[in-house]
Design a protein around this nucleic acid. Structure first.
Lengths: 170, 170
DNA sequence: GAAGATTGATGAATCAATCTTT
DNA sequence: AAAGATTGATTCATCAATCTTC
């Protein structure tokens, strides 16, 4: 990590914004910049925790999807839809997990276009141990407390729903 | 963007977590996953707004740093510290901005190791117009309102400070 | 023609290694 | 030795194009 700044760069940007633009423009800019920076910090923490397990956070997400699937295997396409990443990314992700011996490819039994990714026994071990580590580290969210996290989740859930990320009957 | 899911993937993950792990483990996982997903959505929106200006959000951030600097130029190293990205990333970022004619490199006047990046007249135009567009689009934060954004900013500011992102006298 | 997956390209981030200058 | 910047390699995201199968 680089050296800390002697001032909050987001507060500084907000100051510039309020000087040159309408006051209403400040919160959107500051919120977006905050989310970008926090995401960067969280990702670094998560990858640090996962590195000893030979995992990155992206690969961990794909692995957990298989881990909690009913049969332990899913078509690559479904993985992409569920993780909301491009098909190309799924190919790369499964490539990496397969090289690490945590996942195996197999032909889809009925659709010969499709490929299944299946979690291996070693993959299940890695998923369990890595998740224990991440939970132990509270997914890097320290020092935020449960109430703060819940408020965050609720606001971001409203945003995600409005963005068309998912639809529910309710 | 891929098709929307018929359920909230984060609520689904929370359900799995509460089945297999301690209840206290749910909010950290759900908050982190939410931030990752929202960051992904916001970045896509921002890049969509910036693409007509020949900019990506990363390049926009670097450009704005120069735009609001006193002399319109900064050493590459300072840009990296300020944006909290690796020196290699700064080199690439300035490469892209230079190719677009928005920034120019020049030797540092006193330290012959260092390189200055200076914003050009075209760069200033691009910075102004792109910022107008981003402010117009509220930086992609719809439908979140000012109060929600301010709460978000405050919580994330607490996290960033604790993470050592910056230090202030107060 | 459309769906599922892969390959090859680019953008953005990192790390390791290198080179010049301090 | 340390600082500033660049190059080369790797990971992860995207898009465009391709190939097989439906």
């Amino acid at each position: 990590m680089p050296a800390p700044l002697p001032f909050d760069p987001i507060a500084e940007a907000a100051r510039q914004w309020s000087t040159h633009w309408d006051a209403a423009a400040v919160p959107p800019m500051a919120a977006v910049t905050s989310i970008m920076r926090v995401q960067q910090i969280l990702l670094a923490r998560l990858n640090e925790t996962l590195a000893p397990h030979g995992l990155t956070f992206s690969r961990y997400e794909a692995l957990m999807l298989l881990f909690y699937s009913r049969t332990g295997s899913l078509p690559l396409g479904k993985i992409g839809v569920r993780l909301q990443v491009h098909q190309t990314s799924v190919t790369q992700l499964i490539d990496g997990l397969e090289r690490a011996g945590l996942v195996e490819r197999s032909p889809h039994p009925t659709d010969r276009r499709a490929t299944l990714a299946s979690i291996t026994a070693r993959g299940r071990d890695a998923a369990r141990v890595a998740t224990e580590d991440l939970n132990e580290a509270r997914f890097g969210t320290d020092p935020l407390e449960r109430s703060e996290l819940e408020a965050l989740i609720a606001t971001l859930e409203r945003f995600r729903r409005a963005a068309g990320d998912f639809v529910t009957d309710a």
